[in-house]
Design a protein around this nucleic acid. Structure first.
Lengths: 170, 170
DNA sequence: GAGATAGTTCAATCAAAAATGAACATCTCG
DNA sequence: CGAGATGTTCATTTTTGATTGAACTATCTC
């Protein structure tokens, strides 16, 4: 007794159990890193696919919109998390997951971490200026100590980056 | 020529320029770490305050609801990012910012990072099971290699934690 | 122990972020 | 060319998650 067929959709292979689990794994992963779930879906499916997939493959298999897929691929390209596969004679471009952790981490740091650290740096500079404008000496000393602490925190955060690269790389 | 006074609100000291900047700094900071902005507001104001503040102080100075303040303080307590100040003869409990980076990082790792790593660990285990159910030998080998890679990534992520503690601590 | 004071909870509201999909390029090759 | 195929953009819709605020609990004070 077949259920009502989905009206007029092209027949699309459901994700296998394994694919579903991997996709979900990466959805969670990228969410933790502050990125939209669709990016994780796309990367996850590419990661567990034995052959490169086109944008249209992703749309059909994941059931997401063309817009999401396009935007998600743009993000992944920016991170260096996908590579275009050479497919002679095939027009449509196909992607595969980049699986070099060092490169992935590098991309993430460059695109998502560095900008925040840099703008934080700037803001600390402005904080010191704001502190200098304080008239009361005792207050100014307290504020100065706190902002200096903040500056130290930012410095340590920057120290983490190469260290991360080291642990993750190779 | 004074502007129209705010109707009937209790007179509340506006945040100073410095306070505003520090609060904004921490709002951005906690957002990057995936926490609600109000948590950053509260921690930021405590961080730059020369004396401990009560929940009600936070509500009035930041212009947030009692609910947000209560919930935000709960989160910060969970992280070990605030301390209750001893104030003999004062009923209402007052808080001050904990400013030991090692402790802050430890709290963040314990509350926000560890749970994700643990659940990821579990999921990788289930992935290996799903791979084992694959019939085609070639496919199974490919999947197995990929999931093993994932397992390796998780291991490296776990290696990062003590390292972070080390760089940030002391 | 009655009334005030302090703080928490949680259903309802609101706002920020993500996803959609139609319109718009840009190709490709017959 | 020009007709299909491919991919991007972006205004709108949807979803998610944060915030509010009223009701409630617990605790002090006299």
């Amino acid at each position: 007794m077949p259920e009502l067929e989905e009206s007029d959709a092209a027949p699309v292979a459901e994700l296998t159990d394994l694919e579903r689990q991997v996709v979900d794994f990466f959805v969670d992963g990228v969410r933790v890193l502050g990125m939209p779930g669709s990016v994780g879906e796309i990367y996850g499916l590419l990661f567990i696919s034995r052959e490169p997939l086109s944008l249209d493959d992703l749309v059909r298999r994941l059931g997401i919109s063309k817009g999401s897929a396009s935007q998600g691929l743009r993000t992944l390209r920016g991170l260096g998390a996908v590579k275009e596969a050479e497919m002679p004679g095939v027009r449509r471009v196909h992607y595969e997951a980049a699986v070099d952790l060092k490169r992935l981490a590098g991309g993430f740091i460059r695109e998502q971490v560095r900008p925040h650290l840099d703008s934080g740096q700037l803001k600390v500079g402005r904080l010191f200026e704001a502190v200098a404008a304080e008239d009361d000496r005792e207050a100014r000393e307290f504020y100065d100590e706190r902002v200096a602490k903040l500056e130290g925190w930012m410095k340590r955060a920057r120290m983490m980056l190469p260290l991360m690269q080291k642990v993750l790389g190779q």
